[in-house]
Every structure is written in C-alpha cells, then in structure tokens.
C-alpha cells in the first residue's frame, strides 16, 4: 500500500529525513515512534507532499507520489489528521466534515454514516464552530473529517496528545476499530508505547531523521523503549 525506497526529505537545504525504507501492507497499522524532533511528523508531511523537496521513491498503491501535489495525494485516498488537529476554526463541525468530502473521487458530498457511528458527538455539535470545541472534541472532528473522504489510508499524528484521559481511551478504541473491523491501513505517530505495542502490526523507531529500529508490533520491548524512546 505504501512503500518508501531510499527516501530523503528536505526543508530548504537541510535534510530532515534520510534514507528511509519501509513497506506497509494493505489493512495493516504502522506505528512511528521516537523522541520529539526526530522526524516523525516530517515523515507524515512528506507522505502528504508538504515538505519542500524529496529524493528517492515513495509509492502509494503502486503509484509514485514524488511529483504529485498535495491535493492530488488527498484525492488518491490519503487521509491526514495532522498534529494539533488543524480543525478549521470558523467552520462549523458540519462544514469541517463537508470539507473532508472534497477529497472524494466519487464526488459525493454526503458524510458517511460511520463518522457519526464512531463519533456521535459530532452529530450533536454539528452547528458549533470548530474553534469552540474542546481539544478532545476537535480531535474527534479531525479524525471524522479524514473519514468523510473514505480514505484508503489514514495518517494520524499523535492523536491522543494533550487530550483529556476519558477521550484518549475512546480515540484509541476508534483507531483499533477502524484498523481491525474496517480494514483501514493506518500510519500512527505515537508517544504511547503501550498503545503502539497493543494496536500495531509493525513499528519503526526514528532518530535524527533515520529509522534506527523496526519490527513487528509485539517485538517492541522495553529494551528498545529504554534505548530510543526515554529521555
């Protein structure tokens, strides 16, 4: 589904990702781990085409992404839930969700039922402004917005960061449901090692823009955690 070969990514002249290689099987979940500032977010931004320049190859569903614009990548079925959620503040919840449907290839503008099944609160709050929601509600909206486009793959950047604990669990459950029951391919940038171990098929640990360890989810042991993830 997603394949990186000797992938480099740049902001201006500085290289932020170096020589990345990984594969992501359809329907699987990949956890991207690492300390702050090692390039996890940049990896997701590179997949969306939001960095200045890339080198090497990146394929999505067998098609090269290299020269595609960000909006074209979205139309190919990549749903992005960025760090900080980036809900459109002066749009209502309904408008934010509708915005998600702009990336649908079939041109439909109806919000899929599963969005409201997973996040009933979005129906209840549909006329509130995105900027007036709490952090947890905004995160649910941001994930709902990505699901509204019926994505083939979902990129989640620290979806539980800075969110009240009762909603953290809810969001984690939704992510697992999407992956296991809906068969959605997911790339998850995460700080919570326990959740990554529980939920993910594979993981990769990054440091200084490179992959330093990778493996199957259940192999994510304390030794790796202590060496690369603690401060």
């Amino acid at each position: 589904m997603l394949e990186a070969r000797n992938l480099y990514s740049y902001y201006g002249k500085s290289v932020v990702l170096q020589d990345l290689n990984f594969d992501l099987e359809p329907g699987s979940m990949l956890a991207v781990l690492g300390r702050n500032g090692v390039g996890k977010t940049t990896l997701l931004r590179t997949i969306m085409g939001l960095t200045d320049r890339t080198k090497g190859d990146l394929f999505f569903s067998g098609e090269p992404l290299g020269d595609r614009r960000t909006d074209e990548r979205a139309m190919m079925g990549i749903g992005y839930v960025p760090q900080g959620r980036e809900v459109v503040p002066r749009f209502t919840v309904a408008e934010n969700l509708k915005m998600g449907t702009f990336a649908r290839k079939d041109g439909k503008r109806a919000i899929p039922d599963k969005v409201f099944d997973l996040f009933p609160i979005l129906k209840e709050f549909s006329e509130r402004r995105g900027g007036d929601l709490s952090g947890g509600q905004q995160q649910q909206l941001a994930i709902g917005r990505a699901l509204a486009m019926n994505p083939k793959m979902l990129l989640l950047d620290e979806p539980t960061e800075g969110i009240q604990p009762n909603i953290v669990q809810e969001i984690e459950e939704v992510i697992q449901t999407l992956n296991v029951e809906h068969g959605l391919t997911i790339v998850l940038v995460e700080q919570n090692i326990d959740f990554a171990r529980r939920a993910c098929d594979r993981f990769l640990v990054m440091d200084k823009g490179q992959v330093v360890v990778s493996g199957r989810g259940e192999d994510l042991n304390d030794e790796i955690a202590n060496k690369h993830l603690t401060f």
Partner: peptide
C-alpha cells in the same frame, strides 16, 4: 466553502483535495 477554507488554513485545505 473552498475559498473560506483556503483563507483559514491553506495547507490543511490542500490536504483535503482543494486546489
């Protein structure tokens, strides 16, 4: 709607298929 989205957040608008 697309224009208002781009005004508020160009990058995220492009991430949702808006040119």
């Amino acid at each position: 709607t697309k224009l208002r989205a781009v005004i508020q957040n160009r990058e995220i608008s492009e991430c949702y298929g808006i040119r």
